[in-house]
Design a protein around this nucleic acid. Sequence first.
DNA 1: TAAATAAGTTAGGCATGACTAACAAATTAA
DNA 2: TTAATTTGTTAGTCATGCCTAACTTATTTA
Lengths: 227, 227
Amino acid sequence: MTNKLNLNNLTKSEEDYLKALFQLLIEDNSVKVGNNQLAEYLKVSPASTNNMIKKLKSKNYVVSEKYGKLELTEEGKSIAVRLIRKHRLWETFLCNYLNFSWDEVHEVAEQLEHIKSYKLIDELDRFMDFPTKDPHGEVIPNADGEYSILPKITLSSLEEGAVCQLISVNDASVTFLKYVSEIGLALSSEIKVQEVREFDGSIKIQFNNIQETVTRKFADNVFVKVI
Amino acid sequence: MTNKLNLNNLTKSEEDYLKALFQLLIEDNSVKVGNNQLAEYLKVSPASTNNMIKKLKSKNYVVSEKYGKLELTEEGKSIAVRLIRKHRLWETFLCNYLNFSWDEVHEVAEQLEHIKSYKLIDELDRFMDFPTKDPHGEVIPNADGEYSILPKITLSSLEEGAVCQLISVNDASVTFLKYVSEIGLALSSEIKVQEVREFDGSIKIQFNNIQETVTRKFADNVFVKVI
DNA sequence: TAAATAAGTTAGGCATGACTAACAAATTAA
DNA sequence: TTAATTTGTTAGTCATGCCTAACTTATTTA
């Protein structure tokens, strides 16, 4: 178990970098995450990333060799997981209690996840009776930072004829989320891959008696469980 | 009615200064608020305040002449009121739904009031069924920024023999709030001023068959209605 | 009313976290 | 195996918002 007592005097930026790194490294299970990749993910310049990584290394949250790949220390991971927990609990609250829709919660949760108070988030958790998944289907880490990282199978990775169930979607793009709900997809929807077109990677799918053709980019953001 | 469409691109600091100025000017009904007074209230140096006031003047939130008293424009007031609304709604939420006590809410609400989302705060308001007072007895402005500023009579301003009812307390000090609840005072408590001591301004009060002697400083932070 | 005090302002500095431009190292391809 | 490309680093700049020290203007009060 990692240190629970540190009062987390990190800046908003430091937190953003650690969370981004965690999502690239652990959630996306990348073999190598480099400086430029992190910069692109965060939409800042490589120079800014380089600076911040130096700082995070000096604080022992990040480890890397010069010109080498970036890695998180246990401490770094622990901070990132707590941020993810906060983000997902707030998203759940916004959706389930404050009438926010799927696609409206991300931006506000990005702000709320930086509020510093252990009591706040643990009480919010209790208030909602300890939810285990957020509105996008993502697992919410518990107060001890434990959670299962489900292997993320994208819809785009399936072959023709496969039948699957929608378990989560990438929440980072409002337009994507709007599109998902517009065509009628929802968590747990059963999807059949009818045709995969070599030419542009687009996929013809069927669900609830609806047929749709979606792009490769779309299918990359839809995570499924094969059934 | 003031402009509702501005998307409020103010920094946290700018918001803090506007809110502080509002509380000194309007809520405390001060005849004159100067640079140093504002600096002291915010616990920053007069030089910092001077800088920020320049910036807020250039943005038309503040008006003042060189070496003159500070004043808020309508726009400035409107922003401050919205911050106060957010602060008090969050305090109410923390107390009534998340098991926070009187003295724990202020610090977290100071963070939450800077979250930028009209929907968030209006939905929170609706969720709690439009409360009109926060846990410390302060009036919560409505979504249009309207609210009554009750004349604040401090316990310290009363004379011997006066009987009054506690309507609100200054929420800025944790130690003060702890003390208030420890001695058994609560909102609506009926208080009788038994003795005012010239020497040090301390006051002997009686409430719920309890007798207590409180300091002048304490009595300055307790707001009452004479009955 | 002149000196003392209080209040307000300016100048210059520092930390954070962005940026661009220039350069160095590593990787990939010809 | 060298050249091209990608990736990473460094140097220098800028805005924000804080600071101290020095200075100016206003207000008191002796």
